Amino acid sequence: MDDALYHTYFDYADQILPTFYDLAVDQYRLLSSATDGYEDFTFEERLASFYYILLDTLGEHRAFVQDTFDSRIRYDSSFRGNVRTALRELLSDDRIPQSNRLVTGLWPVHEVLTEVTFAIIRHWISDQTNNQAATTALVDKLVAFIAELVTFRGVSRGVDLAWHIVQNDALGLRRLPLLGRLFPKRENRSSE
Rank of each mutant, 00 (worst) to 15 (best):
T8I: 02
A13V: 13
A13R: 11
I16E: 09
I16C: 00
F20V: 05
F20A: 05
D22H: 08
V25M: 01
V25E: 11
Y28M: 06
R29T: 01
L31Q: 13
T35R: 09
D36W: 01
D36Y: 06
D36R: 09
E39H: 06
D40V: 05
F43I: 08
E44F: 03
E45P: 00
E45S: 00
E45Q: 08
R46L: 03
L47S: 02
S49H: 08
S49K: 10
L54R: 04
L55D: 07
D56E: 13
T57L: 00
T57D: 03
G59Y: 03
E60Q: 06
F64K: 00
V65S: 07
D67A: 14
D67C: 04
D67N: 13
D67S: 13
D70Q: 13
S71V: 01
I73S: 05
Y75E: 10
G81V: 05
G81W: 01
N82M: 01
V83L: 15
L87D: 03
R88H: 11
E89G: 08
L91M: 12
R95K: 08
I96W: 02
I96A: 06
N100D: 01
G105L: 05
G105P: 11
L106P: 00
P108K: 12
E111A: 12
E111R: 14
T114C: 06
T114Y: 02
T114R: 03
V116L: 13
V116M: 14
A119P: 05
I120K: 04
I121F: 08
H123E: 13
H123F: 13
I125D: 12
S126I: 10
D127S: 10
Q128S: 14
Q128E: 14
N131H: 15
T135Y: 12
T136Y: 08
A137Q: 15
L138Q: 15
L138F: 15
L138E: 14
V139H: 06
D140E: 15
I146Q: 03
E148Q: 12
E148C: 02
L149W: 07
T151Q: 09
F152M: 14
F152V: 04
R153L: 05
R153W: 04
R153M: 06
G158M: 11
V159N: 09
V159M: 12
V159P: 02
W163S: 11
H164T: 14
A170I: 10
A170R: 12
L171Q: 07
L173S: 11
L173V: 15
R174E: 07
P177K: 03
L178P: 00
L179S: 09
R181S: 04
F183K: 03
R186V: 14
E187C: 01
N188A: 07
S190G: 08
E192K: 11
